[in-house]
Amino acid sequence: MTLDPLIARAHALWQDLADGPVEFGRSAASVIVSPRSQLCPPAWCGVVVLGGAGIVTVPTAEVAVQLRKVVAEVPPAALVETDVLRARLPVADVLGPAALAYLSGADFRPMSTDRTVTRVPAGHPGLLALLTKAGQEDAGESGLDEISSPAFVVFDGVEVVAAAGYQAWPGRTAHLSVLTAPEHRIRGLARTVASAAVAHALDTGLMPQWRARPEPSRRVTHALGFQKVGAQLSIRLDDGGG
């Protein structure tokens, strides 16, 4: 069976980030020991499932034994379900799951709007003010402070009330970041600025990637034409398991 080119490209990206010899397995997820894996925080276990196939990175050989037992029992898609993992492992902490969505130029649905979107440098002071106003949790979720692209913003007077940009990832991937000021949400501003950032990424020849946990963020991906193809989950095990 020929793999969707978008999924194949996403597979290559996450295999690179795993920092070890691993391939997405369909019958059972592949598990490797990779202390420097970028699928998860240091000393955690990282799980990525894309197109029904999965990979898992773990920090030690001892943890690998535990995870290989789990992947032998459940299909790859179940590995990003926290209840499944908690029932089989001594899970101490969890990040995610976050949906992973990708976009090809042919599927892009640009946002039509009469709002003015302004391009500013990533270090623009208005972005810092927006991050501060949004609060630590929303600001951290957005990743806006890590973008390497220009920022695409909507102003209300002199104040930035919505912004989007992307961080350059391996494999010519553009990892999207979007944030709207709390009092300006539910007005379509996230779609407006995200559309501008996505258009810039596509024009540069990059593959847009959107990692989303909150439902409003997932709705924006759907509106712009992103294809949800999987999910990412990180777990920290208890009792010396990482």
Rank of each mutant, 00 (worst) to 15 (best):
V229N: 09
V120T: 09
G140E: 11
R26D: 12
K69F: 14
S148M: 00
A28R: 15
L3I: 14
A164Q: 08
L131R: 12
R115E: 09
G171E: 14
D239F: 10
A181D: 11
G126F: 09
L128E: 15
F108R: 04
P214M: 02
R36M: 02
D107I: 00
V70W: 13
A196I: 06
A92M: 11
V117R: 10
V71H: 05
E183F: 03
A53Y: 13
A223K: 08
R9K: 15
T57Y: 09
Q209I: 00
R185G: 02
E159K: 12
G240V: 07
A196G: 01
A151S: 07
L67W: 15
G240A: 06
A8G: 13
G52V: 10
L202W: 11
W169T: 00
A134D: 05
I186M: 14
Y166S: 00
V49D: 08
G46M: 01
P208K: 01
L224S: 01
A162L: 01
L89I: 13
G205I: 03
G105M: 00
V160M: 04
H200N: 13
D203V: 02
E62Y: 10
Y102V: 04
D203T: 09
A190V: 02
L6T: 04
V71Q: 11
G105H: 00
T116V: 15
L89E: 07
E73R: 12
P75I: 09
L85P: 08
P21I: 02
I235C: 04
G51C: 09
G105F: 07
P21Y: 08
A199G: 10
T173W: 03
P42S: 13
P41L: 12
V31P: 04
V58Y: 11
T116W: 00
P150G: 03
T60W: 02
R36L: 09
L39Y: 06
F108S: 02
V161T: 03
E146T: 14
A223E: 10
A190R: 00
G140L: 06
P208V: 00
A77C: 07
I147V: 14
G25F: 14
G171F: 05
I186W: 10
G20L: 08
A92P: 08
F226Q: 02
P214Q: 04
